[in-house]
Amino acid sequence: MSALSARVGRLPLIRQVRQSVGLQRGMLVTGLVLVGVVVLAAVFAPLLAPYGYAQLGDASGNFGAQQSPSPAHWFGTTVGGYDVLSRLIWGARTAVLVIVVGVVLSIVVGVLLGLLSGYLGGWLDRVLVVVADAVYAFPSLLLAIVAAIVISGGQSGLWSGILAAGISITVIFIPQYFRVVRAEVVRVKSEAYVESAQVVGASSARIMFVHALRNSTRTLPLIFTLNAAEAVLTLAALGFLGFGIEPTAAAEWGYDLNRARSDVTSGIWWTSVFPGIAIVLTVLGLTLVGESLNDLADPRLRARRKAKQR
């Protein structure tokens, strides 16, 4: 039993929850619950949502536009005549897909470039660092818009829309992973175990992938969660500005917010508040997880129980 619990305790996240105390544990658990809800909604959207994301009516006719919350439509309907709750749940799926595509792409590319740049150094390093800095200099949203236009011509369906949003996010995030991994690799490069491998005569590829890579990725989960939060915001902003995904292709919170703009002044609150809350809670959840992982990973920031007095 204790062996089992010891093994469970070594799993990521569960280990961190066990390690944490007090406020840090509260933050981590809150974040995990929020993220869990979003992921569950995304996975089980077809089962949870009462209607489809592009459904305008059912057997009893059209839903009608801007209907206030009722037993049939818990969160009301939008100006386009869609069910708000359904679009909220399906929207989680879009958000999660964009996060996965965007962050996975940027991690793979950013980590590889960072590894090469940090370990090999020289002109390659200098060029890549300059390019990464140049990308930093652009406002990220502008860059995302340009990327979205280049990829999909502005408007698009589900997958091309998700890819457009994902790749435009990738462009912004690659420099972040690149810089972090590069800095870590530069640090690891001067460690005695890398020198030891050099003395032994190991090839650069072996040193990079066996020694440097695995010792440079500690901080990635933290950036990953924080970037995921930013990815949600970028996606929402793209949708809000009209560079997102067509309502008939997928549900998207930013797009719904955009459409709800005119409703606010006429006292129709349900079309804007719910997508807004969804964005806020998703970002909050991801940020809480990221920040508390960050604190827990650093022994100096980690709170501990006081040692027991005898």
């Binding site: 460690e191 005695a192 175990y193 030891s196 491998a197 003395v199 032994v200 005569g201 066996v210 010792n215």
Partner: peptide
Amino acid sequence: RLGFVFQDPGTSFNPLMTIGHAIAEPIQVH
């Protein structure tokens, strides 16, 4: 034909590799 022993025993081993793998590295390479 060359061996090297570093000063700081704390950093001369890759923390993610077992001692056995680390000791065997010269064999893996040569």
